[in-house]
Design a protein around this nucleic acid. Structure first.
Length: 109
DNA sequence: GAGATGACGGGCT
DNA sequence: AAGCCCGCCATCT
């Protein structure tokens, strides 16, 4: 219905399991718009505090944290991911081959 | 309705 | 290898 693109983004991000991460472009692709990575980023930027959306599990296609909105963004996100078991290399990058989430249940709704 | 912005991505220099 | 530019999509002013 009137579900905006952002709503779909939130719903998709909500499906990212614990200890896994996904890229903006990946989420956009799952939504049917692989080129809407920016739209995803914008949606998460407008994400309200207290939402049940694990926004911290969303990173850029390089496996890095691209946040540049608020100050404790990157730092907080990294801390949350590490707390879930996600490892960061010296460059602050994550290994999609190990922590990258693949929608096995995609299309289930 | 048009223009500018932005938590991106890929390509070129 | 790092930095710069262009392009795409979705909101905001």
């Amino acid at each position: 219905m009137a579900r905006s693109f952002s709503e779909r983004v939130y719903d998709m991000v909500r499906r990212v399991p614990y200890g896994k991460v996904a890229s903006y472009g990946g989420i956009a692709a799952l939504l049917g718009t692989p080129r809407a990575a920016r739209g995803v980023g914008r949606a998460l930027h407008a994400l309200p505090d207290g939402s049940d959306v694990p926004w911290w599990r969303i990173i850029n296609g390089r496996g890095e944290i691209s946040i540049r909105g608020f100050v404790h963004g990157p730092q907080l996100q990294r801390a949350l991911l590490e707390d879930e078991g996600v490892e960061f290399d010296q460059e602050g990058r994550t290994d999609f081959q190990r922590f990258g989430w693949e929608p096995q249940d995609a299309g289930s709704r």
